[in-house]
């Protein structure tokens, strides 16, 4: 089971791809779907790998994604 999770606010995303590039465990990929502004938001491809480190949240210039660890 994954240690953490990521939450994405698709409508706020501008598709810069920082989170996809710098995710240390490669949880994300840019989706082929568009949001209402016409950007490709990321989607989760391997949820089980997420460590909840929140590096995606620190990189995201649009405050559209964050990660956290599950409370144990």
């Amino acid at each position: 089971m994954a240690k953490g999770f990521v939450s994405i606010t698709v409508e706020r995303c501008k598709g810069c791809g920082f989170c996809v590039e710098f995710c240390p465990t490669h949880v994300l990929a840019l989706s082929s779907a568009y949001n209402s502004k016409g950007y490709h938001a990321p989607h989760i491809v391997s949820a089980e790998k997420c460590s909840g480190c929140d590096l995606c949240g620190m990189y995201c210039p649009d405050f559209a994604i964050f990660g956290a660890r599950y409370a144990r």
Partner: peptide
């Protein structure tokens, strides 16, 4: 779409 559960009280720390 999310394939797993996100805790209801989770929010972006920013």
């Amino acid at each position: 779409e999310v394939p797993y559960e996100i805790p209801v009280d989770a929010h972006n720390p920013v």
